[in-house]
Simulated assay, not measured.
Amino acid sequence: MLSSGALRAHLLAARLAGPVATSREESLRSYRLFSARDPRVTLGLDPEWGWGERDLLRLMADKCGVSEDPAYRFGPDVIDPELTLSALDAFAARLGEAAGRRAPVLLGTGHPHRLLGFYAALADALSAAGCLVLTPAQGRCVDITTRFGVRTYNLDYVRGVALVREPGVEGAGCETGAHTHSPLPIRVALEGVVDGGWPLPELVVGDHGWVCGAGQLGIEAIGLADTDDPALFVGEAEGRVSVAVPLDDGVRSDYYRPLTRYVLNRACLSQ
């Protein structure tokens, strides 16, 4: 079993925590846009409270460990590994609870190139524990506004994990997909749940709009978030996201494997 100390060392060595690749400039820009309710960073969340830039900076210092000093504006951002470990424990506890009651679950990612393997391992373990891993609305179109205009994607599933891919991409089912922050894919998936007569998910696991979009609709949601993703932490503060795990969400995919082992062990889902 991977110990907390060993995982802490890995988090720092892989730059999943500690000084991370996400820059302070990127984070502050996201806080500024979030305070203006820009949908590119609210990720489907409709905040109940007024969140100014200073409020967000204090929140992210508390939840992630970033510097609370507004004068620090350039350089790498920082994630406290102890906060990551604590959140991973809470994340694992939620997975274990869902597995214990064999709850229907939905997993989705806007970071398929980096995080698909992490979520797929969770999907496999939850399925083995008797959970229904939902895969509704496969192939359905999702129109997402990007900086290039409105683009149409198709909802797809790889090893039980939802993602979107561009139409006509060769090899549907292969481990590729588009990066997206949009909450529209989770909405399309939930429409598919209703249309297909499936049970609604009791837990959504993922990132970006998958988590915030589900939480906004009152579905329990847990996920991973970087220092420039304040929406998940706001959702957690307001009670609509159960757990937001602070870590760099853009490192090499194999660097997340120790996190997978740690979470599955903590959730008593190791096979």
Rank of each mutant, 00 (worst) to 15 (best):
A162F: 05
P185Y: 03
G171L: 12
R58D: 01
E191R: 15
G209R: 07
F34N: 02
R147G: 11
R187V: 11
F74T: 11
S67A: 13
R37N: 08
P104H: 12
T135N: 09
T176C: 15
L184H: 10
L155T: 02
S67F: 11
Q138V: 13
L85G: 00
A99G: 10
A61K: 12
L200T: 07
H181C: 04
G96L: 02
V142G: 01
R54H: 14
Y72F: 12
R114W: 15
G50T: 12
A21W: 14
L11K: 07
S30N: 09
L12E: 07
G44H: 07
R101N: 05
P19K: 13
G130C: 03
Y262E: 02
G44C: 07
M1C: 10
R240N: 01
E220H: 14
R54S: 15
K63A: 12
Y256K: 09
W51Y: 08
Q271S: 12
P76Y: 07
F34H: 06
L155W: 03
G235K: 10
F118T: 03
V150S: 04
A178D: 00
A120G: 06
L33C: 10
G250F: 15
A172F: 15
E202C: 03
P199E: 05
H111P: 00
D124F: 09
A14L: 12
C174V: 13
R240F: 07
A36M: 14
G108Q: 07
V142D: 00
T146M: 10
V234H: 04
W49Y: 09
R147Q: 11
R266V: 07
E82A: 14
G239P: 02
G18C: 06
R102C: 04
L57M: 12
L134M: 11
